[in-house]
Structure formats: C-alpha cells, structure tokens
Design a protein around this nucleic acid. Sequence first.
DNA 1: AGATCATTCAAGCGATGACTTGAATGATAG
DNA 2: CTATCATTCAAGTCATCGCTTGAATGATCT
Lengths: 221, 221
Amino acid sequence: MSISPKLALLEEYALVARALSAPARLSLLEQLAQGERGVEALAEKTGLTIANCSQHLQQLRRAGLVTSRRDGKAVIYRLTDAKTLELMDLLRIVAERNLAQVERILRGLSGGEDAPEPVSRADLAARLAEGSVTVLDVRPADEYAAGHIPGALNASLAQLEQILPTLAPDAEIVAYCRGPYCVYAHQAVATLRRHGLNARRLEGGLPEWREDGRQVLVDAG
Amino acid sequence: MSISPKLALLEEYALVARALSAPARLSLLEQLAQGERGVEALAEKTGLTIANCSQHLQQLRRAGLVTSRRDGKAVIYRLTDAKTLELMDLLRIVAERNLAQVERILRGLSGGEDAPEPVSRADLAARLAEGSVTVLDVRPADEYAAGHIPGALNASLAQLEQILPTLAPDAEIVAYCRGPYCVYAHQAVATLRRHGLNARRLEGGLPEWREDGRQVLVDAG
DNA sequence: AGATCATTCAAGCGATGACTTGAATGATAG
DNA sequence: CTATCATTCAAGTCATCGCTTGAATGATCT
C-alpha cells in the first residue's frame, strides 16, 4: 500500500459519498427504491440517455450502492440493501434541517404557507382498517400497477383535476408517491387543498410502506 | 424558479453528498467530531494548507454540515449537530458492508487474520466500574488532554512500544481513538496482540462515548 | 451460424473541483 | 489610528466529472 491506510479508507468512504453527489444518480436511486429495473426503463423514467444512464449505474455499483444481474439480454439493477435507503433518507434529513434553500423549495411546493403535518404510516394503516380515509396514489399508472397500498386510488397530477369531482367534499384524503424524494404528493396535496379538500401527505412513500412490512397490492399482469 | 422544484431539491441533497465526497473534508469532520476547532488547528491536524483548509470548511458550511463563530480574530468551526456524525457513520457502514477494498484495508490494519470483535461502550463502562480493564487512549497528547475516558492511559502509536513493559501480561486492554474513521486503535490493538497481550478495540471513539452521555475527564489547563 | 437487441465501452467537449500562491479583508491590540 | 494576525478571496493549473456520439460487446432467437 503506497499511501497511508487511513487515507485509503477515507478515499473509499468519499467514493460512496461521491456516488450520491449527482442529482441524476439520486434520481436513479429513487427509481430503484421502487423495485429492480432494467437500464432502459431507468433511462426512460429519469430522462437520461441510455449510455449516460448506464455510466451512472456503474458508478453506483462501484460505490456498492446497487448490484446488477443479467436477465436474458437485459441487465437488471437493484439497491444493494436497505442501508442505501437509510443513507438517502439521512442525506435528505440533514439537507432539510440545515439548508434554507430546501425549506424554500418545499414551501413553494406546498403552494404557500399552510403545510399540514404528514400522516404517519402507522396512522394511515389504522385509519385504513376502519375505512375512514381515502388514499391517493400520485404516481404513473405503471408504478401503481407494480404495487400500491390496498384501496388506493391512482391519479397522476395531470389526472387529478378530473377526479376532483368524484371526491366527497368532506373526505379525509392521504396522498403518497415514490417516497421522500418525490414531490408528486406535495403537489397533489397543494392542489387538493386549493380546492378546499382535506388532504395530507403520507410520511414516506411506497418503498417505506413496504419496508415497514405492510400490505402491498400488485395488479395482475 | 427556472428549473423544476424536483431537480432543485435533488441538487441540494447532492450538495450535501458532495461535501462528503473529498477525503480532506472527511478528515476535517473527524477532527471537528472531537470538538470545535479554529482553522489553523484544523489545518495542522489534517496536513492541509491554511487557505485550502479554509476553502474546504466553507464548502462544509455551504452544505450545512458545520457552522462557525468568531472568537476574537479566530474563526471557530464546529459540527452543526449530531446528524452530521450519523451521516458519516452511515457512510462508513455502507462502505464497510459493500466495498471489498475497505475490508481489505481493515484486515491489513489489524495485522493479519484475527481481528477480535470490538468492545461495546456499555460493556466498557461496566468493566470500568468494577476496575477489571485497562483503557488505552491512542491519540495525540493534546487531544487526550482536551478530554478522555476517566482512568485511560495515553500513548501515541510511537510511544506504545515504550509502555509495553508496564502493562500486566494478563491485563485486559481496551484501546480507543478518535472514532470509527480513526485507525490508531486498530493499529494499537494489532501491535499489542503481536506482543501477546489481550487487547481489543472500543466500538467508536471518544465522540461517540461523549454522545452516549458518559463521563469524560478534561485535564486542567 | 447469423441477425438482433440491450448494454457497455471509448473518445471528445465543456464545466467543475482540488490545490497552490499571493493579495485582500476584518477584528483586535498597542 | 496603525500594526498585526487569522482568515478569506482571487487567479491559475491540472485532474476529474457529466454528457454526447458512435462503435463494440455479449447474450438471445430464428
């Protein structure tokens, strides 16, 4: 070992951090938190070119955050383990605590001042059991089909205006999306509240719900 | 907001990760975990030039990981909060779990094969109470003076060979240093075991011990 | 075996990062 | 108010990163 072991270790830790230091890669990790995916699907969802996406995935793999396997001619990537999610979550928490810019963006997303506290997953589960809540899944239809909270309605942000009239005016609505990195639920809640509905966000998204060991409904296909 | 709020958020999260993506800055954070420090002291300990050190510190500040205050003509930096430590710790854990290179380096540090499990802090506290253990602080004298576990001997790696004869051959020795990023305790344990002594590492270092709310002795000065 | 398709590699470009050097700032001490 | 000292700023250099484009793998299907 030509350099000191201490520096070598720091280099390795820095490698992991560097893997998390590009928005494109965080976006990929968010997608992978939904479940394993092929390169093409990831490129599509994140808006990256295939080659660029592949390079980012390889960087994530070098950092040990994701692993891959072959399935026919496709290569399927997935998160190495739940620690990767923890790391992303802590990154977000630290950013939210310390960066004024983040708070500004989040306030902007909520459409103004009044951002109600998110609903905890345990709370939602209890309310679901007694049927006293309407759950809204604000993700693209394919992700909804791949797994969603039982009983949840599915509507993308674009579709939201259409289904507004079908919602009971006094219903208690809980919206969720991909997870803490996803802004769909924030935006949906803002829209719903602008229309006078009683809507709140779920804490976390489907990956966290699944991680809790709660029930997830998968559409036949 | 010209770009999408989602991308803006990811940029902010990435900013925090980027702050952790340079070995020099991890080294600075490790020092700051010991306690607040001025720029010059940090530069000295990390081997950076003053200007370079200052620039790194400003990046850490932009990422919200450290804050600073003025004290006379000096600027004192400190970790923003314990979450910063948690983030570093998780980074290390993920690297240790997933990167073969890290395991290789750590095995090299332990001098070979037999790396005994570290002693938990709760265990050490219990043993200390009954006086059945020798605690060794493997940090520079100034850091020892600034705070150490009560009853601990202080010896840098260089001094270790000298104090070897003073240690009872059957004593149970627990070595600690700055924390999980620091390799002194690993190396000290390797040396002690090579001499046939019964030595193990403490889990974590002084910052973690302090974080637990355990007693820390500060030399009068 | 040859054709096909998803993924990866390789080269090139502009932008950003780490480090150095030397000058500027800003608070304190005389 | 000037001198001093710790820190920060500014400019420059070299290396690396992110992205694009086009070619090269490598596994399947006929």
